[in-house]
């Protein structure tokens, strides 16, 4: 049975952007400012967050997931300011988050794990079994739902992680390197899921695989040294590059062109 619409579903949005940051600064450790003066506005759709290693992608996603507190600037999620010591409870119910290195309890089955996460996200008790089943089916783990997490392969664990992220039907979905460990067939399936989710959700996917972005994202955010380098469609990114830049595809050439013009020489790697 499809979920019935509630007043909250049909209420008009009171914000222009699901995610809006201006001058956002997020500190990692004591000294390093991993996100330094970021201006960003993201609406509904699938947004690919690209950047070299150490660009601050994970830190940005953790700040968006309200795990890290911003050190400065402004961050608004779903129209709510995420600043100081506010109560984030209502906001967090509407966020889905898959960390890069996500831990889980090995003895839980997939269903127990997703159920537990649904409970933590305050999904109404009566809706939990159906929501869990739906999330598990969407990532193609229905036949493994009663297997323990420790018996799953790396790709399946990652899919279980995606299932827990979407179990509460989030309006902002944050996925940190979700395609790591997925085989090519699963990656194709994941891109389909991403396109499907991007229709009514603000999805932010951090990745270092340019082809993932090309296939599944409507919008590219290029990020280096804690600052925004470029935001636009994948076509814009491809157009930025030329044959003189390194890369095997137009998108990769655009990626290296933008990073080089930004003064990113990179090391020997």
């Amino acid at each position: 049975m499809p979920p019935t619409t509630s007043a909250a579903d049909t209420a008009p949005k009171t914000y222009a952007w699901e995610i809006r940051a201006s001058g956002l600064r997020v500190r990692v450790g004591r000294k390093k400012m991993a996100v330094d003066g970021l201006d960003l506005a993201l609406g509904t759709g699938a947004h690919g967050l690209l950047g070299p290693n150490g660009a601050g992608k994970t830190t940005l996603i953790r700040a968006l997931a309200t795990v890290l507190r911003p050190a400065g600037g402004e961050l608004e999620l779903l129209g709510t300011s995420v600043g100081g010591l506010g109560d984030h409870r209502a906001l967090r119910r509407r966020i889905g988050y898959l960390p890069q290195e996500f831990g889980y309890y090995k003895r839980f089955t997939v269903r127990e794990f997703v159920e537990y996460m649904a409970w933590l996200k305050e999904v109404p008790k009566a809706d939990i079994p159906a929501a869990v089943q739906r999330a598990v089916e969407r990532v193609g783990l229905a036949d493994r739902a009663d297997h323990r997490m420790k018996t799953l392969s790396g790709g399946m664990v990652r899919r279980a992680g995606i299932a827990q992220a979407i179990v509460n039907d989030p309006e902002v979905l944050l996925l940190d390197e979700p395609t790591a460990g997925l085989d090519p067939a699963q990656r194709l399936r994941f891109r389909e899921l991403l396109q499907e989710l991007g229709r009514d959700t603000c999805v932010v996917v951090s990745t270092h695989l340019v082809e993932d972005v090309a296939a599944a994202c409507s919008d590219v955010v290029l990020f280096a040294d804690g600052r925004l380098v470029f935001q636009g469609t994948p076509e814009d990114l491809a157009a930025a590059g030329g044959p003189e830049y390194p890369g095997d595809s137009p998108l990769e050439r655009g990626y290296s062109a933008l990073l080089r013009n930004n003064g990113q020489q990179g090391g020997t790697w």
């Binding site: 209502a90 889980y104 996200k121």
Partner: peptide
């Protein structure tokens, strides 16, 4: 100690009640 700390910390129930 808690492997799921990162996941738990981002959820609605995280905080004083939990």
């Amino acid at each position: 100690l808690d492997p799921a700390h990162e996941l738990t910390a981002s959820t609605a129930r995280a905080g004083l009640p939990l």
